[in-house]
Design a protein around this nucleic acid. Sequence first.
DNA 1: AAGTATTTTTAGGTTAATCTAAAAATTTAT
DNA 2: ATAAATTTTTAGATTAACCTAAAAATACTT
Lengths: 221, 221
Amino acid sequence: MESISQTEENYLKAIYKIAERAEKPASTNAIAAAMSTSAASVTDMIKRLSEKDLVNYERYRGVTMTKTGQKIATTLIRKHRLWEVFLVEKLDFSWDEVHDIAEQLEHIQSRELITRLDEYLKFPRFDPHGDPIPDEDGVFTFRKQVLLAEMEEAEEGVIVGVHDHTSDFLQYLDRMKLTLGTEIKLVERYAYDDSIKMLLGDSKEIVISKKVSQHLFVQKK
Amino acid sequence: MESISQTEENYLKAIYKIAERAEKPASTNAIAAAMSTSAASVTDMIKRLSEKDLVNYERYRGVTMTKTGQKIATTLIRKHRLWEVFLVEKLDFSWDEVHDIAEQLEHIQSRELITRLDEYLKFPRFDPHGDPIPDEDGVFTFRKQVLLAEMEEAEEGVIVGVHDHTSDFLQYLDRMKLTLGTEIKLVERYAYDDSIKMLLGDSKEIVISKKVSQHLFVQKK
DNA sequence: AAGTATTTTTAGGTTAATCTAAAAATTTAT
DNA sequence: ATAAATTTTTAGATTAACCTAAAAATACTT
């Protein structure tokens, strides 16, 4: 069994997120940006990962992931999100504080640990930000969701996720009581700036900006 | 704030354990043995730690710890032992399975995490092996305890700790029902091989070898 | 106190992961 | 389609953490 460093793991996760999202090879520059490093370092690392058959690499052509690489990446995402649930549910952290700690915890090596943690948390399917937690085989639960910005007037739904994980945004949502699980109804959209007036629960009315509406996922009723 | 690597942390912990136990400088060879590495590598590392004022070093004289180094070492021990409690109490691991995982978890960097974990676990003072958990200032709870081997016939006490952390020993104790908290009474010591007959609780009688008796800590009644 | 054994350090080298600067390949624009 | 701009790779260095082998210092023995 080949050993794999924490740095290599982080590259794999970054490549997975880029390549999977775009459904095409991840470019050297995109990886460099994601890892806050130089393109030269990325080329170096890609060669090493390719040696180990964790990615497919053709020079100047970008990188895709092998089955093995994908497995490692989804396991990392699984571990990260399970730990986030633990931190929020058990240790009472708020959703804007857990990312950096989970970023470290995801590298702890122990199959058994994750199995037991999952069980202890009662097999959660989504993390505190509403992102799906892949199962042991790397399969994500799919949920039919839209951006609040894409909804029509009078439509109703439940807030189920965020598309911006910065603490600024998350803290804003807390202050506005726009937490996950909140039922909403779109009252009116103002064409001038695409801001939206909506009903929270069945009493409170608030207005949010276009930007906010583009960062909230809603499951329609 | 100087950054400190995981490797450096492990050296500090090893040096702390050696120097503290012996109450004199840790020798290069002793550190090399503890870290399963060469004496040359230890000399290298010691110089680096000394540069950062984490240890006091005089060549050919061995190493002692500075206040800063001690703080780091006791914090590591605190984190290790708190995580062990978590693994056993919450995730239902047995006491012989937790060491390697805690060895990784102790390097997670977050003050807040440890504060909250401690609270979540209800501020335990001892880990699953009976070892004391230092407080935030690095102070260990002291407990008056003796080795079972040092007890006299007819004396009574409670098993409170182990002096051998190998899984072989811990599993043996499980099988013999010699777990922490068990009340015992020394019935007879056989001079021939220093094996001991003792009473477990108030019904079961068992005989243990000298070796076992030298690895069990007892708090006398 | 001299000689032997042990411990510790130095010297010199390796590997992973990084960097900057320059060269090469590819893409975009005229 | 050629030039200009961009992206990617190579070249060459650096640093942390390790190694082996040889030299130096200290400790043990008689």
